[in-house]
């Protein structure tokens, strides 16, 4: 049964394995200065879970109020995660920009 599972999902397993390596590589050599924005940016990226909420709300029957209400809340929360995450990260990183004529200095 486990063998079947691996065989059926072999592409996913490759993908997961490679993505884990990519994630480790991307973060390992980052100066600690950027840890906070990076955490926040990664936080926004996992908001991709929003797609799941969209798909599940998109197949709910129009008289299934349980799913409609939960789905609506799910999409709102997912969007908050995505939009809030990216905007907060942008605000943090805005301050790292090199100062040119616009700076107060």
């Amino acid at each position: 049964m486990i063998l079947d599972f691996i065989y059926e999902n072999i592409e996913f397993i490759y993908l997961i394995f490679l993505m884990i390596i990519v994630g480790i590589e991307l973060i390992s050599h980052v100066p600690s200065v950027l840890h906070t924005p990076l955490m926040s940016g990664a936080n926004a990226i996992h908001g991709v879970v929003l797609i799941g909420a969209i798909l599940v709300l998109g197949k709910a029957h129009s008289d299934d109020y349980f799913s409609l209400v939960l789905g609506f809340v799910g999409v709102v929360l997912g969007t908050l995660n995505v939009v809030g995450g990216f905007v907060v990260t942008d605000r943090m990183l805005e301050m790292f920009k090199k100062k040119d004529k616009g700076g107060k200095a």
């Binding site: 996913f12 993908l15 997961i16 993505m19 884990i20 390596i21 990519v22 994630g23 480790i24 991307l26 973060i27 390992s28 840890h35 990076l38 955490m39 990664a42 936080n43 990226i45 996992h46 991709v48 879970v49 797609i51 799941g52």
Partner: peptide, 15 residues
């Protein structure tokens, strides 16, 4: 979803 999720999962653990 799978790629984004795993990416954050592994990057977040290392962080």
């Amino acid at each position: 979803m799978l790629m984004g999720g795993v990416l954050v999962g592994s990057a977040g653990t290392i962080l």
